[in-house]
Design a binder for these strands. Sequence first.
RNA 1: GGAGGGAUGGCCGAGCGGUCGAAGGCGGCGGUCUUGAAAACCGUUAGCGGGGAAACUCGCUCCUGGGUUCGAAUCCCAGUCCCUCCGCCA
Length: 470
Amino acid sequence: MPGGCGSRDPRRVLQPNARAPPCALILADHGCIRMKRPDAMLDPTLIRNQLDAVRTGLATRGDGFGGDLDRLVALDAERRAILPALETARHARKDVGERIARARRSGEAVDELVKAGQAHAAAIKEQETKLEAVEAERGSWALKLPNLPHTSVPVGRSDKDNVEVRRHGAPTGFEFEPRPHWEIGPALGILDFERAARLAGARFAVLTGAGARLARALINFMLDLHTGEHGYTEVEPPFLASSDALTGTGNLPKFEDDLFKIAGHWDLYLIPTAEVPLCNLHRGEILDERALPAKYVAYTPCFRSEAGSYGKDVRGLIRQHQFDKVELVAYATPDTSWDVHEALTRHAEEVLKRLGLPYRTMLLCTGDMGFAASKTYDLEVWLPSYETFREISSCSNTEAFQARRAGIRFRHDGRGKPEHVHTLNGSGVAVGRALVAILENYQQRDGTVIIPEVLRPYMQGLEVIEPGGK
RNA sequence: GGAGGGAUGGCCGAGCGGUCGAAGGCGGCGGUCUUGAAAACCGUUAGCGGGGAAACUCGCUCCUGGGUUCGAAUCCCAGUCCCUCCGCCA
């Protein structure tokens, strides 16, 4: 459920009378958050008026809607049929109520009027019951519809149909046989899978000494870059989120199996990415257009059950139940969001450039995109042990998909009806995989690992990680 | 975990079950006065959804969800959040 509206709500206390919003947090132009349950993920008008386009668009997706769109349309029509009847009945009841009040005052009899009122009340109840059933079914269909791919997205079935749009650096060459990170790390004494397994099971890792410090250096380097040079506001959010928040981003109701749920009576999950708290930061708000685009960056741990990925990437740090990530999220107006998407992708790329890691930028095809995305670029970093590029960042524009589910809007020119904002997200970048890429790409014949120059200030000047490295 | 107190429009703050979508104040906007400004005075000022070219009109909205009633901001139940105190605690 939405947050409360206590008069001590900090948003109200901070509410400025002046027009200019503060730079850090955008303030809603109303202090109180009211939210009904999410309406639909796709624009209902679009489904109503351009059914065929929606149908063909969704069909190109890998996770395409398996259900019956016709049923959804029928439910929508039913709803729109009930509404006028309900409103007429309510109007009649209100009218009778006023006449009773007047009659009472002048001492006239009200028995007949009360009887009429009772009839209206019964009619209202009947319509409401019908409406409730229709909306419940419609809602459960609607929330499972994935986003429509943007027209610039290539149609394809799998990652094989993704398109490389640019490349930076050449795959690292070695004059010796490079080793995988799951050998390099333990040999240096900075990475330990055995002890992690003993304390938490498979798919966990312990970083120690220079390994832990390297992770922290990466986090700080990325945060400093995005806040200092790319204009993002740093956020430290909760690492748990409610089912409403996860529904807003599209993780629920379809992908509950991918999440870790808190035991007990709590309606809480461990966040699978900081995209969840950052996209829900302005849940239920109407934003000031002048504060857009609003850009946030957060470091958080991320938790994923990795259900259904048994046997995949079982070795090393590539696929863990817990990993660190620095996440970028932007809120933009519809006419700027595509520019923001390109910029955000470049911001993520800049991290890899400065770390001196070879990578390529892939435009995902329709079949390989995530549920909420309208268009996605993946950044793939070169990993010598795999002799291939592996995903290290994913940058998506969800257009109004998440905003509609989470009720995030803005008012054009400060007037008129509020419109949904566009939300964008991208890893900037995954810390664990960046650490893997450094260990593997910067390894030397003697097993030591050179620290990229940009990280050295964050490592007390350390240039090389040697065995037993502190 | 225990005990209390709260939640009303952009903000503060009233509100006997019956023209209450809500007094009053502040703020905002428009005007009078003024060389200009301030002050003073007058007027105006909620959101959301639907219909209409428009004036306009219908419905919903006083934390949320149920209930009582012809009729609920107001009464009842459940929940959420905030505040104060005690306990515990990084």
